[in-house]
Amino acid sequence: MLKYLLNRSIEFLITLLGIITLSFFIIHLAPGKPTDLLSELNPKITPEARKKLEQYYGLDKPLHVQYLLWLKRLARLDFGESFSSDRRPVIVKIRERLPITVGINLLSILIIFLIGIPIGVSSATRQYSTYDKVTTVVVFIGYAMPGFWLALLLMLLFGVHLNWLPISGIKSMNYDNLSVAGKVLDVGKHLLMPVFVAAFGSLAGISRYMRSSMLEVIRQDYITAARARGLPESVVIYRHALRNALLPVITLLGLSVPGLIGGSVIFEQIFSIPGMGQLFWLSVMQRDYPVIMGLLTIGGVLTLIGNMLADFCYALADPRIRRQ
């Protein structure tokens, strides 16, 4: 298993370098110098900020020198200063927002696991039943549902008409005066809809995939053998079948990480959550290039970490890899 993980780590490092290189070229892909674009599109930009950007990317130096400088800066997590009026270092801006986005995404992965997998398993064990048909239809519709529209509908229903849940932010105005339990409840109420919306897109996909994976496993000989030994059905399904059927789903969950992180732009914007996604949206609106490049890199790194964790879980679950 160690060798397997080591191999994967090397691959990840190469991919990481690739992400960094790609984001470097995106800056240079812009027609003309990024600084020309800057002053052209954003008349408010000061000559001082322009000079800073030129200095930061070393735009007067040859391309390979610029690239090496860029690598050197990233190694120290130095993404430069934001162009917005606060002029704070990009890394500080990202660091204060990162936990919120990562937290919401972890919660939604948990929900995907807790809801999507049981739905997939139960509809597979009852193939062609009414329950199976209904869930298949619901999943198909869910798959086609635009996440931001679902968010709007939920806001309309629970926020506006029923007035049960708050529709923006992550805490109330009076948050600081609440007791500990009150604080937890308050944040929970604020996060309920965003987490559900974030999970929803992958939820449909995962439960559909879980169903087909389970159907395939149930037809295998060792499941027939387990049944023939007289094991109760629940043991056969949950002990023998589920474990094997989960393997491809773990990989898929790892692959859904970039979608989740990208999706945070949408739901954070809708629910006014002060996370990374909202920062990205604001930066694109204001053409705050240093922040955009920083977030692009961090987003890639987060995806890599997600994939790495999925690989690790896969290795834990699959003895064939563990014993390699």
Partner: peptide
């Protein structure tokens, strides 16, 4: 594939 595609799309949109 390992860069969140929405991030990638938005970054390019910011430039073009």
């Amino acid at each position: 594939l390992s860069i969140p595609s929405l991030f990638l799309i938005l970054s390019v949109i910011a430039f073009v």
